[in-house]
């Protein structure tokens, strides 16, 4: 297993190098001029030149790239001009916020979509099957920021049962001390139930927004793959042997139907990370997506590069995890590196 992981990780190195080069070039190719932007409203040409020199942007591209690589080798991702902090610090504090939200969203989505898909598959053509279809299509068709705003409007503004969309914690709570960066886990480690509940409350609406968006692919994939498996011979045999429907569906059918579902989960997780950007904007979530978009708008190179690099690393890890999961679910799958 270790050998496999190492081999797969080594394979990821060329793609990471590619990502580093491409993001560097892309950010430089952007039409914006960070020096003009950060020189402030009253800048003269000289003032802008001065800032260009301070930022090292007057150097030839190759020199800038060399400097960037040298910094990168030391683990230094540069400084963000728009927030004024090192990018590595920003990513370290913001990534857990995004990850906590995305993972919870995915979890909620799985808890709804998988049973829904199984039910739809076992009763094809029923009212529930159609409801499932309509629900998931609607969920994926509505843009996430819209779903988010509607949820805020209903549950916060009108009903007043959801907390204010003010980020990860109500302002009168202090965040738990940083262990994993996940508020839910950190507060449990500290046995602070109040903070746990408070951060859970803040998480419900944004996680639900993400879940609604990602219901469709999971539910549809579960349904399709369950239908295929339910029609296969071993299921017929199991049924004929008089096993209870529950055992047939869960033990025999579902386990075999899971492989494509897991593949879909990997895909859904990655596009949820993208959808996160908009959800973070709506719920004032201090995550990594909104940070990257703001940096992009300000032509703030370092955070954009850092963000893309982090995402690339995360994708590599995610793919690796999914491959390993394959092996666990279906022993027949042997991964060739």
């Amino acid at each position: 297993m270790l050998h496999l992981i190492l081999k797969r990780s080594a394979l990821a190195i060329p793609s990471l190098i590619g990502v580093v080069i491409v993001t560097f070039l892309l950010t430089r190719a952007l039409p914006g001029d960070p020096a003009a932007y950060f020189a402030g409203p009253a800048a003269s040409k000289e003032a802008i030149e001065q800032i260009r020199v301070t930022l090292g942007l007057d150097q030839p591209l190759l020199v800038q790239f060399g400097r960037y690589i040298a910094d990168l080798a030391r683990g230094d991702l540069g400084n963000s001009l728009s927030t004024g902090l090192p990018v590595a610090t920003e990513i370290r504090t913001r990534l857990p916020a995004s990850a906590e939200l995305t993972l919870l969203g995915l979890l909620v989505s799985i808890l709804i979509a998988v049973p829904l898909g199984i039910f739809a598959a076992t009763n094809p053509g029923s009212i529930l099957d159609h409801t499932c279809r309509v629900l998931t299509t609607a969920g994926v068709s509505l843009p996430v920021f819209f779903t988010g705003l509607v949820l805020v409007y209903i549950f916060y503004y009108h009903l007043g049962i959801a907390p204010a969309p003010l980020g990860r914690l109500d302002i009168y709570f202090s965040p738990p001390s940083r262990i994993t960066g996940f508020f839910l886990i950190d507060s449990l480690i500290e046995r602070d139930v109040e903070v746990f509940l408070a951060s859970l409350k803040q998480l419900i609406l944004p996680a639900l927004t993400l879940a609604i968006f990602s219901l469709a692919p999971i539910a549809r994939m579960t349904r399709a793959s369950m239908l295929a498996v339910l029609g296969s011979e071993f299921v017929r045999t199991a049924k004929a042997s008089g096993l209870s429907p529950g055992t047939v569906i869960v033990t025999y059918a579902f386990r075999n139907a899971m492989l494509p579902v897991v593949t879909t989960l990997g895909m859904v997780f990655s596009f949820l990370l993208g959808a996160n950007v908009l959800v973070e904007k709506v719920f004032a979530w201090p995550g990594i997506g909104s940070f990257a978009v703001e940096a992009l708008i300000a032509s703030d190179f370092a955070p954009v590069q850092g963000f893309v690099l982090t995402m690339a690393v995360m994708y590599v890890i995610l793919n690796l995890l999914i491959d390993i999961l394959y092996g666990l679910i279906d022993p027949r799958v042997r991964i060739e590196a």
């Binding site: 920021f145 705003l149 805020v152 409007y153 916060y156 503004y157 969309p165 003010l166 980020g167 302002i171 904007k281 709506v282 719920f283 004032a284 909104s290």
Partner: peptide
């Protein structure tokens, strides 16, 4: 607190 969405700042 920074709240990027204008609708939420109003709410």
């Amino acid at each position: 607190r920074t709240v990027p969405s204008a609708g939420n700042r109003r709410a």
